[in-house]
């Protein structure tokens, strides 16, 4: 299939390129490395953003899925690349988790974080047939001696660390049951094999809207527009907040002018209506963050992940 509009744009660009000798960044295709296989959360995010971002940058994005090692292979590859501004990685908090768990050679400082685009909450959810109507009853039962079985996706994953942290915040000692992926975890709680799950909002979206699963609390600091009926931990008197994030990062040493150009394009691309519809369907929220604020955000999150991982591996 030939995309005529795209072809025309390319021709036009080629003509422009002949006219002006010194072309501004970017003057060729950008490589985007997704450290997971096609169809996952990070992959769908960048592919949904791709058309708008290509338009704003005036170049093509070549999205490559470099999966393996639960994201470790792709990120290790990117961390070693030169910082010429032509390779970006789609990153999420999984990067920080892997560093915290000590399975990889890179550190967060090997990357220049360009943007945080999406956020989704972690939800503590139970089956619709669960005996716990709300968070308070669950806590009460747990403090009475019952060990709550909480399912999470993947051992040593972000959800795993988060579930441990939530247990601490609630003052209970749950048994964490790692499953291979989000869907296995959801079906286990639906079938009543475990008491609760801690999962990202997108993974729970279809189960929530079919009302097979009820969310007891969201990890957002405030209630989100997409899940207005779910109360936060803070509202329920539990001092806990966090979120899953997805964004873009470059190998360390990105030039300031390149970063400014990317941020400008991203700011405009994320206003695209088609992109909004897609992320709305997926159960994620637009929460852009750039520059120093982003660096601070990443630093805080990394520190917390390290603490949680330390507690876990003791």
């Amino acid at each position: 299939m030939i995309d005529v509009a795209r072809l025309r744009r390319l021709l036009l660009l080629a003509l422009l390129g002949c006219a002006s000798p010194a072309l501004a960044y970017p003057d060729r295709n950008l490589d985007i490395i997704v450290p997971f296989s096609a169809g996952g959360g990070n992959d769908v995010f960048i592919r949904a953003l791709q058309p708008a971002l290509e338009r704003e940058l005036g170049t093509h994005l070549v999205v490559r899925n470099l999966a393996g090692g639960g994201g470790a292979v792709g990120l290790t590859h990117v961390a070693r690349l030169p910082a010429d501004g032509y390779t970006l990685a789609v990153v999420s908090d999984g990067l920080l988790t892997q560093v915290a768990m000590g399975n990889v050679d890179f550190v967060p400082e090997d990357f220049d974080f360009v943007a945080k685009i999406l956020e989704e909450p972690y939800l503590l959810a139970v089956s619709r047939d669960s005996p716990y109507p709300d968070l308070a009853t669950m806590i009460e039962d747990a403090r009475g001696g019952k060990r709550i079985k909480i399912g999470v996706s993947g051992v040593g994953s972000s959800a795993y660390l988060t579930a441990g942290a939530i247990g601490d915040a609630l003052g209970i000692d749950p048994i964490l049951i790692p499953f291979d992926g989000g869907t296995e975890t959801v079906s286990a709680v639906m079938g009543g094999h475990i008491d609760a799950v801690v999962l990202g909002g997108a993974e729970l979206r279809s189960a929530l809207s079919s009302q097979r699963v009820r969310a007891l609390a969201t990890s957002y600091p405030e209630r989100s527009a997409s899940l207005p009926e779910v109360a936060t931990f803070i509202e329920q008197g539990i001092d806990y907040q966090t979120s899953v994030f997805r964004g873009l990062a470059a190998p360390k040493g990105l030039e300031d002018s390149h970063r400014a150009r990317l941020v400008e394009a991203l700011q405009r691309a994320t206003e695209d209506a088609g992109f909004h519809t897609t992320i709305g369907h997926l159960g994620t929220d637009l929460a852009p963050l750039y520059g120093e604020e982003l660096d601070e955000f990443v630093l805080t999150l990394a520190e917390r992940m390290n603490q949680q991982a330390e507690q876990l591996t003791q």
Binding site: G39, V44, R205, S206, S209, G283
Partner: peptide, 24 residues
């Protein structure tokens, strides 16, 4: 249920969600 049976249907589920079709 929104619970895919294997790898290909897992990707298909992503397609359904993007279309605004919520299984269940």
């Amino acid at each position: 249920l929104g619970v895919p049976g294997e790898a290909a249907t897992a990707v298909l589920l992503g397609g359904l969600l993007i279309q605004g079709i919520t299984p269940g």
